[in-house]
């Protein structure tokens, strides 16, 4: 397959020494195998995620994403913008659609962008990395690169919210998307069947401000994974990964549980299956080590 190029929007959490830096590491490893070239949008800014609304009004928030799109159009013309973070993808895609559909919003946004000498068209595609994998490669192709099948690992595919709603992945349902399960299978591991918390909210950004309420949700997500016999949880979203992984200690204290389940990214599974080592797969970034994956990575 020929090299594929995308305009890449990594987002704040993927930066060096940020909470999803290991995600970034594994994405890059995975892309190398798949011969994907990610052209980072130069000087991109934060999308304001879905929590910026209080301080930022509608137009300032749209302007943030519009700036990224404008920069991408300038630097990587004609390339689809690909985001790895669910919130980044969502905010950017929503902005693209709203500007595209509302000419007065478009006009006002460009008025604002003009202050920095920018202009946006917003007629390209904004895609999540998972979409790229499924639509531009497909499971068959993704499976062809597997060198070390992840045999003997049972994995709960936790899709979360914003990768799934409101746009979702084409052909998948909002309530029971199957792509992570298929991906897990493609990588040679066993998906947890009927994992019924796969699209439950983890509290998202409110994990900070409403920890008790969020952790109650996270607990259910983890519990259901254990009930399904999972060795680990896989997710496509940095917020999900962070929330489900790092609060396990607090949840254990609060609920007297003994959770210690690794939460990894799909890109980490793929990197390992594609033959990468622990470091290249970002597995050293796990607060709860994914030992079964590490074992395979070390083989």
């Amino acid at each position: 397959m020929a090299k594929k190029e995308y305009s890449f929007y990594p987002g704040c959490s993927s930066q060096k020494a940020a909470s999803a830096s290991n995600y970034q590491t594994s994405v890059l490893t995975m892309c190398e195998t798949l011969d994907v070239q990610l052209n980072e949008i130069p000087d991109w800014n934060c999308c304001s995620a879905s929590i910026g609304y209080a301080g930022g009004g509608e137009l300032p928030r749209l302007a943030l994403s519009a700036r990224n799109i404008a920069l991408s159009e300038q630097a990587n013309p004609g390339q689809d913008i690909v985001a790895t973070c669910a919130a980044c993808w969502l905010a950017t895609k929503e902005t693209q659609e709203r500007l595209h559909d509302d000419s007065s919003l478009m006009e006002e946004t460009n008025q604002a962008l003009a202050e920095a000498g920018l202009e946006v068209q917003a007629d390209g595609n904004i895609r999540h990395m998972v979409e790229v994998l499924i639509e531009d490669f497909g499971f068959d192709e993704l499976g062809k690169h597997v060198k070390k099948p992840l045999e003997g690992i049972k994995i709960a595919g936790y899709v979360g919210c914003q990768t799934n709603r409101p746009f979702g992945i084409a052909g998948e349902s909002f309530e029971n998307p199957m792509y992570l399960d298929k991906l897990v299978e493609t990588m040679g591991a066993d998906p947890v069947e009927n994992y019924d918390k796969k699209v439950q909210c983890c509290g998202g950004a409110l994990a900070f401000s409403e920890p008790d309420k969020s952790q109650a949700l996270i607990k259910e997500i983890i519990e259901a994974a254990y009930d399904g016999g999972a060795d680990m949880i896989v997710t496509p979203c940095p917020v999900c990964q962070m929330n489900v992984e790092v609060y396990q200690g607090q949840i254990n204290q609060k609920y007297n549980t003994k959770f210690e389940i690794p939460v990894v990214y799909y890109s980490q599974l793929m990197s390992v299956a594609y033959g990468a080592g622990v470091k290249e797969a970002g597995l050293d970034g796990q607060v709860i080590r994914a030992t079964k994956l590490e074992e395979i990575a070390r083989k």
Partner: peptide, 19 residues
Amino acid sequence: HKCKDVSGLHKILAKAREI
């Protein structure tokens, strides 16, 4: 981390707020 063109970004946001 930060944007290089922070001032440009601020101008954009200021304008957006103004509108």
